[in-house]
Design a protein around this nucleic acid. Sequence first.
RNA 1: GUGGGUGUAGCUCAGUUGGUUAGAGCGCCAGGUUGUGGUCCUGGAGGCCGUGGGUUCAAAUCCCACCACUCACCCCA
Length: 442
Amino acid sequence: MSTSFQTIRGTFDILPDAYTDDGGTRIAPSAEWRHVEATVRDVMRRHNFDEIRTPILEPTELVARGVGESTDIVQKEMFAFERGDTQYVLRPEITAPVVRAYLQHHLDQRGGVQKLFYLGPCFRAEKPQKGRYRQFHQFGIEILGADEARADAETIAVLMAVCEALGLSDLKLRLNTLGTPERREEYVQALEEYLRPYANELSDTSRRRLERNPLRILDTKVEHEQKLLRDAPKLIDFVDEESLVHYDEVKGLLTDLDIEYEEAPRLVRGLDYYTETTFELESPGLGAQSALAGGGRYDRLAEVLGSDEPVPAVGFAAGMERLFLALDAADAERPGPPTPDVFIAALGDDAEQWVFRTSQELRNEGLHVAHDLMGRSLKAQMKEANRQKAPYAMIIGGNELEAEAATVKEMKSGEQEEVPFDELTPYLQRRLEGNASGGAPA
RNA sequence: GUGGGUGUAGCUCAGUUGGUUAGAGCGCCAGGUUGUGGUCCUGGAGGCCGUGGGUUCAAAUCCCACCACUCACCCCA
């Protein structure tokens, strides 16, 4: 069997079994994705967040305005297209769509603070590499309508809770404040003035940023530029008193929660909408893609999207693919694929019919039942039962039909016993309960 | 956009200085058991050797181009 088609560059299939892609990266099986998603949902429920689902398709203008014209995302990474006179984009992130939905549906009218979480695919037309895909999956939260430092701290606490629930440790939380846009603007000017004399010492990209978005130069990894920045004006010196108080409060609350962090004065993050608190969660040792999640406050985004009043907001976004890299590195425990409770093997046409009907009945009772669909030999069916790791196999042939009792075999021990047809469900339920600890969770 | 790497069976990989019909392990299918899985034994299916061109009596092997995938830089989750 073959096909000339294949997944589009930078995308991947999630299969029932784990496999390694051509770059040697392990692609987790669907059961592990379910496990991570279920863990996220459970943490969200405990933290009182409600799920929001927005379309994958959004107006291009929403992204351009929300994420920022100067960002790489908008400059060169959007999957955008036109139909009729509408410009569409496959969402590259989910914060702007959530704020759009919040404004569109007047969610503030639900009353109080809106605590929302999301989980789903995003798209960016970047060059793919390990832990970075063109279709990738994010989950995250947005707390809308709360300007208190506790909202910032809770955002970070939720992120840490998810990681802990998944069994991740050795993570590094990096924290910074950007202050208000006004003060940031002043700082940007000062930074620009400082750097301009050195313009011809800068790398091409940094020189371009000097024009477009000087703040991002702080992110540079070029050693020479880092040296230059040592004597540059400091962002923190421009942040106003109110922002500093807010920042201190956030740090105090994190300490209260025993959440360790490291201050990162140069952490500016790539998206234009961040203000005040910003943070990033790193998993050291993951190489180029060590950032598992990032977030911060974005008090001005609602207005950028047309709101006539500001909506204080804070949130994070985490990358699922990166999370899996970290889980692999940490060798964290994850469930195997679901296995049938019982495999029912049929011998002969009459038996096949009985098995087919009885399987449905047992399934209606809640049992996970497997049977053959290929008309294969008993031997082959038993082999299949073994492969699927069913703890019990049931054999139905002429003898069983006549006796109205099934041959039930415990695979591990190989022991068999006869069980009357009308006692099958309670029998299986009782036996399965007995070794519930041994079975893989579904 | 810039650099590097890799393309042989479903998977992991051998394949000598170019030389007959391209191999192994695992997996898959069947048989050894007329009604029984795992271990074992036997057999089988499955390859445009990434694509196209060139050199040669002869190319998986040498040369060129292209394509695909991938890692890294940039940036980001």
